[in-house]
Computed example of a mutant assay.
Amino acid sequence: LRGRGPIMVNSNYYAMDFLYVFPTSIQAARAGNAIHSIMLYRRKLDRAQIKPLMLLHTIPMCSAQYERMFNTTRVPGVETDTLQHVNESKHIVVYHKGRYFKVWMFYDGRLLLPREIEQQMERILADKSEPLPGEERLAALTAGDRTPWAKARESFFSRGKNKQSLDAVEKAAFFLTLDDTEQRYDTKNPVKSLDIYAKSLLHGKCYDRWFDKSLNMIVYKNGTMGL
């Protein structure tokens, strides 16, 4: 947490989708099912229903860090960062073409069904509104050095609507990008296609991922996804 360099690439990781299996090419449908599944996994974590990994099949490994998979953000500081974790978060934040959307995951006390989440994603994809001034590339602040981001956060996001908007992102269960590009493993050009795919997951355009969030999910235009 004391490192002052960018966490993009230097600290963050990525995970690819299936290379040979394509559940669907519909972006909203893939997002709806993936979000629902991840929220079910979070519920199991909250209820301590996930069995710990076993060392040599006999010694259980500590699972305390699992809770930080969700509802967690790395908050920049001038000298050192801190981790902010909220016990419960009922929404996610979705980024699409420069706009941020706060999407509630529960209705009347129950988790939304995959189809209901898909409908929310369809509405976002169909939204033709333009980003507000400063909105499109806001996440670039999380991609650079930590100290300038900490100072900008204190100067511009410590009060009013800016603080409320930042809280919505930082206290979300996780961050989702509906990417407007297509990525997929190409058997005719495996090295180049995987290289482009990996770079997209790792840093994207440098302003369409919220690098401070513990979990970023990316769903591409052709239904491919990754973390």
Score class of each variant (00 low, 15 high):
R115E: 15
S25M: 05
L176Q: 01
R30L: 15
Y185V: 08
I124Y: 01
I59R: 00
I124A: 05
T80R: 13
C62H: 12
L201E: 02
E135K: 01
A152C: 04
T73Y: 05
Y20D: 15
L194A: 13
M121T: 10
Q84H: 08
D167Q: 03
A198G: 07
D212P: 01
L83M: 07
R184H: 12
V86P: 02
W104Q: 13
Y41W: 11
A126W: 01
L227P: 00
E79F: 08
K151C: 14
S214H: 10
L166M: 14
L227G: 06
D179S: 08
I92S: 11
L55A: 00
F174C: 13
A64S: 09
Q49F: 06
V86C: 07
M69Y: 11
D46R: 14
T73K: 00
V191M: 06
I26F: 11
N162R: 06
R68W: 13
R209G: 05
F156P: 00
D180L: 00
S200F: 05
C62N: 15
G134L: 01
L201I: 03
K90I: 09
C206K: 13
G77H: 07
A172W: 03
K205P: 01
F174R: 10
G5E: 13
E130I: 13
A48N: 15
Y13H: 13
V78G: 01
E67M: 11
Q164A: 12
R115S: 14
F211R: 07
L141M: 07
R4T: 12
F175K: 04
S11L: 12
S25K: 06
I59L: 00
Q84C: 07
E118N: 02
F156Y: 12
S25I: 06
A173T: 15
I26T: 15
I7C: 09
I124H: 04
E116V: 12
W104T: 10
L83A: 03
K128M: 07
V78C: 04
D179K: 01
K163N: 10
I124E: 03
M217W: 06
W149A: 10
F18I: 01
S158M: 06
A150E: 04
Q27W: 07
D212S: 07
I7Q: 06
Y95H: 11
S25T: 12
S214K: 06
L111G: 04
R68A: 11
N87H: 09
D46K: 13
L113V: 04
K44A: 13
M69E: 10
K192Q: 10
D180P: 00
K161R: 14
V219R: 03
G144I: 05
D186E: 10
L138K: 08
I7F: 05
V86G: 02
P23E: 06
G144K: 09
K205L: 12
R153P: 01
K163S: 14
M217E: 04
